[in-house]
């Protein structure tokens, strides 16, 4: 007789994949719904605040990143209309021109200032001054949520 004692019956090793399509589509729907292109991807430490309201989606963005001591990069200011990726500007006049153009297109255009908390206030002041000169009305100062242990 060919039966060998002690040998187990072979169990087919299979990974159950029937629910994979459901999971994949669930993830796909999630990412489609939360999809938002970030017009400025400059990494920075935003200041923490208790007061935080949602910024408008199509607002123009002015980002101010501090000088990078390791990479030797100077303080950088970038601007974006809110629709295209941000571009660097080198003078305050360029910020005035950018903001004036945006305000001329839409007098109620909102501007987001995304600045690192370590940036000297002098630079933020120059940006605020440029926005005032451009007759901008609404400004948002981007921040992170402050927590009790901070």
């Amino acid at each position: 007789m060919a039966l060998i004692r002690g040998r187990d019956k072979k169990v087919a090793a299979q990974i159950f994949t029937a629910s994979m399509a459901d999971i994949v589509f669930l993830l796909l729907v999630f990412f489609i719904l939360t999809y938002k292109v970030e017009v400025d991807r400059t990494k920075m430490d935003l200041p923490d605040t208790w007061i935080r309201i949602k910024v408008p989606e199509k607002a123009a963005v002015i980002s101010i990143s501090p000088p990078d001591d390791r990479g030797g990069l100077p303080l950088t200011i970038r601007v974006s209309t809110g629709k295209e990726m941000s571009l660097p500007v080198s003078t305050d006049e360029e910020i005035v021109t950018f903001a004036s153009t945006e305000v001329a297109r839409d007098p109620n255009k909102e501007f987001i200032i995304k600045a690192d908390e370590a940036v000297p206030y002098e630079r933020v002041d120059a940006v605020l001054d440029a926005l005032k000169q451009s007759k901008a009305k609404y400004i948002f100062l981007l921040s992170d949520q402050k927590t009790v242990d901070e």
Partner: peptide, 19 residues
């Protein structure tokens, strides 16, 4: 969608400039 979308900071403090 994972690569192009970003969980960006989208909150901050608002203020209106005087006309």
């Amino acid at each position: 969608f994972m690569i192009t979308s970003a969980f960006s900071a989208d909150r901050g403090m608002d203020f209106a400039l005087p006309e």
